[in-house]
Write a protein that binds this DNA or RNA. Structure first.
Lengths: 141, 141
DNA sequence: TGGTGATTGTTCGTATGCAAACGGATGTTG
DNA sequence: CAACATCCGTTTGCATACGAACAATCACCA
């Protein structure tokens, strides 16, 4: 006899499913505003712009990317000339990554669009709700 | 209010970045509870369990997956015997997908864990905050 | 009935994302 | 100084994701 107290599993009410759908909508908004860069690529440029030259793995940690993932992102950015990397003279294991002039221009040229993306993603909520949502969301990271 | 200067772009305060980190944490929790199925695979089984035989593309829409994505998921589930597909006699274009007995057992065996995953993902928030968060999140999908 | 537009599933290419295993370099400690 | 643990970057394998293009099929309507 099944336990009558078991709540049914409703997929559309699960956090994971709702987050996946919200992320999909956000990615769609992002692509509409910045078609030539992916969110992770832009995040990487933003962090380099903010911190200057950074070790590849540290860059991955700063952008919440796996070592294997940040490598692919840096590779693609380097192939497009937005980023350059050089071995760290102090530590042969390390690779120092920096944004090129073109990379910095790319970030600056998209900064306004980036703000618009955040605004548009949160647009269904009132300003008070937006602040509340971001506060709660940050605690789930 | 006239803005004379652009607000700085702080990556760690952007919705997209916070959602990515929250999703990463959720995926980690999911993998710890259900190591033998991915979230999309489990979602697919859940929908089939709830709706019975479903067209492949309709299944994709119900689980928020691209036609190309749901194909891969169904392929892998079928390779493991959790799902079976047959051509729809009424419409030769369609493929009807259904859960096998083993697939239904897999879903039932993980239903409790699935609830635990949602609980654990939301654990950093109070019950009132959890409800608020889900309500706001649903409006961003 | 015949054509046209929409739907269905497939394939390809690109880009995350993570686990695991690996070799090399560095630093620490006994 | 030698053994060891740790960190760094790389590679491979698997699994999402999506856009775009495509062929087959269906539905509708002139």
């Amino acid at each position: 006899m099944a336990r009558t107290t078991d709540a049914p599993y409703v997929l559309d009410a699960q956090v994971g499913f709702l987050m996946r759908k919200a992320t999909q909508r956000h990615l769609s908004i992002f692509a509409a505003h910045i078609p030539d860069l992916t969110p992770t690529q832009f995040a990487t440029l933003a962090k380099l712009y903010e911190r200057g030259p950074t070790t590849q793995n540290a860059l991955g940690r700063a952008t919440a990317m796996d070592a294997a993932t940040i490598k692919g992102v840096v590779d693609r950015l380097r192939a497009r000339g937005l980023v350059a990397s050089a071995p760290d003279p102090a530590d042969c294991r390390r690779v120092s990554v920096r944004a090129t002039a073109e990379g910095r221009r790319a970030f600056e040229g998209h900064a306004r669009a980036a703000h618009a993306i955040t605004r548009e993603t949160l647009a269904p909520l009132t300003p008070a709700e937006q602040e509340m949502f971001l506060r709660l969301l940050a605690r789930l990271g």
